[in-house]
Amino acid sequence: MATAETGSAASVVALHRDGRLVTDYPQVRRLLADADPDELARAGRLLARLDTDEVLRAHPAQAAVSVAVTGHGTLSSLTPALTAELARHGLLLRPYTADFDSWVFELSDPGSGLYAADADLACCVLDAETVLGELPLPWRPEDVERVLAEKTALLDRLAARYGATARGTLVLNTLPLPKRALAQLVDHRSRARMSALWHEANARILRLTSDHPALVVLDLDPLAGEGIAVGEPRLHAYAKAYLS
């Protein structure tokens, strides 16, 4: 059909409308090759609706990768994004999405749904609220130091449990430090101390990869340094989606 030759994400939409997205799934890689971010996001929302088993029945040779997603906050938008990014590289996503804010249980209990999914990749998405949400009111840098120490020790234990239990790779990320958190401290000395404590904790998280071969840690600081928005205030406030 003509739309299948356009080479744009609009063709994915056309395949969906014609009910041919499953039968023509092998074309998706080419169609998304030059898609811009908006097109990719739209295509991902459509592709995420597909029944992966149905696609594999139609195309037994289709390469697939299973990804389990857990973390702190609302992560429903991550599955369509992963679906589209993998599809543009010729891979079909088999997702498992954990319940809201269940990451500690999912990674600590060998009987959890995350381990039952036996995923190739387990993504545990962390954000500043992982720490800020446990601070007392009012709080000082000493409180931040305590919670950061608790969280990094917890991540160390969870990474060890994952490595001993699962066959796949665990992916963590560093914690972006939001400006609004620093702004709650009124003096520059306290702000400097909090920044130092936060960066030291992120360094400890990054160094966990030395002790856990099944662990990968993505550093979000370079992305933030390029001007990529870490969060969106309205989604943060109303949807508890702490990372954009």
Rank of each mutant, 00 (worst) to 15 (best):
G73N: 04
T70F: 05
S102G: 08
A87W: 02
V104G: 02
R180I: 11
S112G: 00
G44C: 04
E232R: 10
E142C: 04
G163T: 08
R140V: 14
S210W: 13
K240R: 14
L91P: 06
P60A: 14
L132H: 10
N202P: 10
L170N: 08
D143Y: 03
E145Y: 05
W198N: 08
S77D: 15
E106G: 01
L21R: 05
R30L: 12
V125G: 01
M1N: 11
Y115S: 02
H59K: 11
D53L: 15
G90H: 04
D219L: 03
L126V: 01
G73R: 00
P176Y: 00
L148A: 02
L56P: 09
W103T: 07
P176G: 01
A214F: 02
A10M: 12
T74D: 10
G111V: 00
R57I: 07
H72D: 14
T130H: 08
L170Y: 08
A119E: 11
Q62K: 05
Y96M: 09
G113S: 11
D120R: 05
V125N: 04
P213H: 03
Q27E: 12
L175F: 01
Y238L: 15
H236K: 13
A241E: 15
R88Q: 12
C123A: 14
V55G: 09
E106L: 09
S190V: 01
A122D: 07
S102D: 14
W103R: 01
L78Q: 04
S190W: 03
H188D: 15
T74V: 01
V104P: 10
G71H: 07
A4F: 06
V171Q: 06
L223Q: 04
A122I: 07
T52P: 11
T79A: 09
L155P: 00
A58L: 08
S76K: 14
L135H: 04
R45C: 14
P176Q: 06
D187G: 12
M194P: 00
S76M: 10
G44F: 07
R207T: 14
R17E: 15
G168E: 06
L220T: 05
A64K: 14
T70G: 11
A181L: 08
A229I: 03
V55R: 09
D120L: 06
A117F: 03
P213C: 02
S108C: 13
D34P: 04
G90L: 05
D156R: 13
G90A: 02
